[in-house]
Amino acid sequence: MTTANTEPTAVPGVTEPKLGEELLSVTGLVKHFPIRKGLLQRQTGAVQAVDGLTFNVTRGETLSLVGESGCGKTTTGRLLTRLLEPTEGQIILEGRDISHLSEGKMRPLRRDVQMIFQDPYGSLNPRHTVGKIVGAPYKLQNVKTEQGTKKSVQELLELVGLSPEHYNRYPHEFSGGQRQRIGIARTLALRPKLIVADEPVSALDVSIQAQVVNLLEDLQNEFDLTYVMIAHDLSVVRHVSDRVAVMYLGKIVELADRVDLYENPMHPYTVALLSAVPIPDTTRKAKQDRIRLQGDVPSPINPPPACRFHTRCWKAQEICKTTEPPLLQLAPRHQTACHFPENQPSDKPVAPAPSPDTDPS
C-alpha cells in the first residue's frame, strides 16, 4: 500500500493487495455478555456482541472492520488485544493460541499487540506528563533502551510529528490531534507487530484526520506494521485498507479486497452502506440511488434467526428467515454471506440451495 498525500476522502489508485505470511488467525470467535437479574444474579439472557467471526490477517496488511454502531467492531478489537476474554473461539498470533492465556502469560505478548484508542482525551492520564505516558510501556515491560528512556521517548515524539520539548508537558496542553499522536507514540514504544486501531480519527476534526491517517500509513511502511482498523467512515476505510470486513450484528457478512468491495459489493447491506457515502461529483451523485434501510437495527440480545439482516433487506425471501447463509467465496479474495448476492459473477454458484421442505418463494 502506497502512502497518499491526499485527504482521506480521496479515492486512491488501484493497487495490488499485499500478500505475506499469516500473522493473526481468528476462528469461530464469540463474545456474549451475560445479563443477570434478581437477588441471586441468575443469568436471564446474553448480549451477543460477537457471534462466530473467522478471518486472518497477513503480515504488513491493513484489515478494516466496518459497520453500524453496535455491530461488534470495538468488541472484536478488544478481544484481539485480549482486553476481553472470548466466550468461544480461537485467536492464533504467530502460531500461538492466545485465546485464554492468563494475564501473566499475556504480559510478554503485549509487546507484539497494541491498541490505539478512539478517544484521545480519555486514553491519556491527565496527571502524567507526556514523557511518563509514552515511557510507561518501557517500565511495565522492564525494557532497557541503549540511550535511556527519556531519549527514546523524545525520538518517538519526533517520529509522530511532535517536538522533543513536549516531554514535560501535560495532555491538557495539547489539541485533539496532538493527543492522538501521543497515543500513537505510546503504542509504538515496544515496536509491536500488530496494532488494533479503534476509530483513531473519528474524534478529530476533518482537517486533522488526513494528517493522522497519513502518519499511520508512513509508520506502517517504515516499521512493517500490521493494522486491524476499526472504522465507520467508509471514505477513510477506502483510503487506508487492503481488505475490508463488513460486520452486522456480530457477524461478518462480507470480506473482500478493498478495490473489489467498493466496485462490486455483493451483500445487500454493503450495497446500502456504500450508497450513503458522499460523492463530491454532483453529476455522479444525481445518478446514484440512495438505499434507505427500513426499520432499526435489531437488538443483539435477541437477534433475528437465520440471516440477521433479513428484517431490513429488500431482497429477503423465506429461505433468509430459516437458513443462515454461510460465508462463501464467490470471487477471488471476495467472501459473502447472502442467499441472493448482488454483482455476482455468472460462473459462481449462489449459497447452498434450500432443503426440499423449504419454500424459497
Score class of each variant (00 low, 15 high):
A331H: 13
T311A: 01
V271E: 11
T323G: 02
N214Q: 15
P345I: 06
N221G: 14
D347R: 11
L330P: 04
Q329L: 10
P326I: 07
R333G: 05
G250Q: 03
W314L: 08
P300V: 00
H239V: 07
D242M: 03
D281N: 14
V244E: 00
V244H: 04
L261R: 11
R308D: 02
V253H: 03
Q317W: 08
A272T: 13
Q317M: 15
L249G: 01
Q344L: 14
S346F: 10
H239K: 15
V297C: 03
K287E: 14
T323D: 06
Y262G: 09
P332I: 07
E324W: 04
C338K: 00
A306R: 03
S299I: 00
E263H: 12
H310W: 02
Y269T: 02
L216M: 15
T270F: 00
P268V: 00
A231Q: 02
P325E: 08
L215E: 07
I301V: 13
D224A: 13
L215G: 06
L219H: 04
R238W: 08
K287A: 14
T226A: 09
S346W: 06
L249Q: 01
A331P: 14
D233V: 09
S241P: 09
V253F: 06
R284C: 04
I279S: 10
T226D: 04
Y269C: 02
L327V: 13
P278N: 07
P305A: 07
K315V: 00
D289H: 14
P304V: 02
A331I: 08
R238K: 15
T311E: 00
S275M: 11
D296W: 00
L328V: 15
Q335V: 04
P305T: 11
Q344K: 15
D260V: 08
I279W: 03
H339F: 10
S235F: 06
R284F: 08
R333A: 12
R333V: 05
R258E: 13
K285P: 09
P305Q: 09
D289G: 05
I301A: 01
A337H: 10
R312H: 02
Q294A: 05
A337L: 13
S241V: 08
K348G: 06
C338S: 11
L274N: 07
S241M: 08
A245H: 07
P304A: 05
Q220S: 09
P341V: 08
S299W: 01
E324I: 09
P305L: 09
E222D: 12
C307S: 06
L225S: 04
D347L: 08
A276Y: 12
A337T: 09
T282S: 13
V240C: 11
V228M: 05
Q288V: 12
L234I: 11
R333F: 07
V271C: 06
Q329F: 12
P304L: 03
N264H: 15
D347A: 13
A286V: 14
L249Y: 01
P298C: 05
L330H: 13
V237S: 03
V228L: 12
G295S: 02
L274I: 11
V253P: 00
D233M: 04
V297D: 01
L327W: 10
